[in-house]
Design a protein around this nucleic acid. Structure first.
Length: 442
DNA sequence: CATCCACAGGAAAACGCGGTTG
DNA sequence: CAACCGCGTTTTCCTGTGGATG
């Protein structure tokens, strides 16, 4: 999973020839010129041309979801759905909703799916399309999106709901009674006839008392308003239902819809759209995109991660050959991994950092295996030096397990016969990465 | 085959710290 | 203000482990 120490050499040998070649060309050009100022100008020109030659990106924003404006985002999504990617999920949701067209009331839905499987996106798409179809059938259908992706209280959730419903941007002040909030929501819904679909994203994010919010939504609200409510709750926790009060589940009479993570084929299509929009197609090899899709689907099937990897690979390609091939993807994956572990190390608590330092100190340059006892001694010395009082061996042992869990060291329990039962600790990260991260984290 | 090393790792007690109560 | 409580962390105590060794 983690990059091996010796792979760093490959990075260098990979791009060096290109750079050297370029420098040589430039040097020749420069030396042929008569005055130095002219040569500098030429150098600038040459570098500029070269930069252009290597550049892959034609439109930057399509590689960064954060920067994509809303209408562009929906346009991209529309394309995704046109390519029949989430077909199964789409048809499930739609068949759940179709009773509306005949004026029947579908039950509420609970949608499960891991992050990056396109829950929100798909639901939004379906609902907006559904609204239009319903309009043609003469059925009044509206929907509202309530985003709870940052943790909210019962009050905060009501607030979001109120904002979504009355269309205004203003937040209601804190401190007003919850009954008032509820009254506002009822008021906002009162004039509406027909169906009202509430799409509640990350519904598991309501902190202290989820139950009361859901009770309000499922029990109180439908009685007070004229329109017919359809609740759609999105969550990425499969066990969420178990945390709920069974009474709530009973009056919800809900349907479950499950979103599988994207598979490699889906991701491939999604990536292709991005590539078309953002990159110079001639410089991108099909195999590379396939590889990105394969990597992402192997890990989590998270579309956002896939795009992130693609973006990283493009950067790698831009600063080396100017072509996106499988090799660049490999490198990008490696770097992404390195960045992650480095960030992880920097975020470690002091004691854990010391433990990690002790491990790599004890293991030495040639990755000798060390027993827990030895490393503990080193750890004691190090923490004395730092002026931190060392912890007991018991705790230290736990920290080793922690470091092992996060893949920062390898520690496996082994019996050395009558010479004891220990964990052999070895490092599994490039020395220089550890050094940099450790020195930075203080 | 029993022994025994040098820890692993579970359980419980002790500690520390913010918050609450009489 | 002391006494108390709840909760997470740390220490102490303890039993368990697996194979080389005599």
């Amino acid at each position: 999973m983690l990059p091996l120490a010796n792979e760093e050499k490959r990075i260098n040998t990979h791009w060096l020839p290109v750079e050297i070649g370029l420098v040589n060309v430039l040097w020749k050009m420069a030396t042929q010129q008569e005055t130095s100022s002219q040569s500098t100008e030429n150098l600038i020109e040459a570098l500029h041309v070269d930069r252009k030659r290597r550049s892959l990106i034609t439109n930057h924003i399509y590689l960064d979801d954060e920067k994509l404006p809303e209408d562009e985002r929906t346009a991209v999504l529309r394309e995704i759905f046109n390519r029949n990617i989430r077909e199964k999920q789409l048809s499930r949701i739609i068949s759940h909703l179709t009773p509306v067209l005949d004026g029947d009331h579908p039950p509420s839905a609970l949608v499960y799916g891991p992050t990056g499987s396109g829950k929100t996106v798909t639901l939004m798409h379906v609902l907006s399309s559904f609204q239009q179809v319903a309009g043609k059938h003469g059925v009044a259908f509206r929907y509202a999106y309530i985003d709870l992706s940052s943790p909210k209280t019962y009050f905060g959730a009501l607030n979001e709901l109120a904002i979504a419903l009355d269309g205004s941007n203003r937040r209601y002040r804190k401190g007003i009674p919850i009954e008032y909030m509820q009254a506002r929501i009822v008021e906002a819904l009162d004039g509406v006839q027909g169906f009202m679909c509430l799409l509640i994203d990350e519904a598991d994010n309501i902190k202290p008392n989820v139950d009361s919010f859901l009770t309000f939504l499922g029990k109180t609200l439908p009685r007070k308003v004229s329109c017919r409510l359809i609740l759609v709750l999105l969550t990425n926790r499969l066990d969420w239902e178990k945390a709920l009060d069974p009474r709530i589940l009973s009056f919800f009479k809900k349907t479950d819809i499950i979103f599988e993570p994207y598979d490699a084929m889906d991701l491939l299509e999604i990536l292709k759209i991005r590539v078309e929009k953002a990159l110079n197609k001639d410089k991108v090899e099909e195999a590379a995109i396939k590889k990105v899709a394969a990597c992402a689907s192997r890990e989590t099937g998270d579309a956002r991660k896939a795009v992130e990897l693609l973006a990283k690979a493009v950067i790698v390609a831009e600063e080396s050959t100017g072509r996106l091939t499988e090799a660049e993807v490999d490198l990008a994956e490696e770097r992404l991994e390195m960045d992650k572990t480095e960030a992880l190390i920097r975020a470690l608590a002091t004691q854990q950092r010391l433990a990690l330092e002790a491990c790599y100190l004890s293991v030495g340059q040639n990755n000798r295996r060390s027993a827990t006892g030895q490393v503990y001694e080193v750890y004691r010395r190090v923490s004395m030096q730092e002026g931190v009082s060392p912890l007991t061996q018991r705790r230290f042992s736990d920290m080793i397990s922690f470091l092992d869990l996060y893949g920062l060291v390898t520690a496996r329990a082994i019996s050395k016969g009558r010479y004891g039962y220990t964990r052999e600790i070895t490092g599994c990260l490039p020395r220089e990465l550890v050094k940099r991260a450790l020195s930075h984290a203080r």
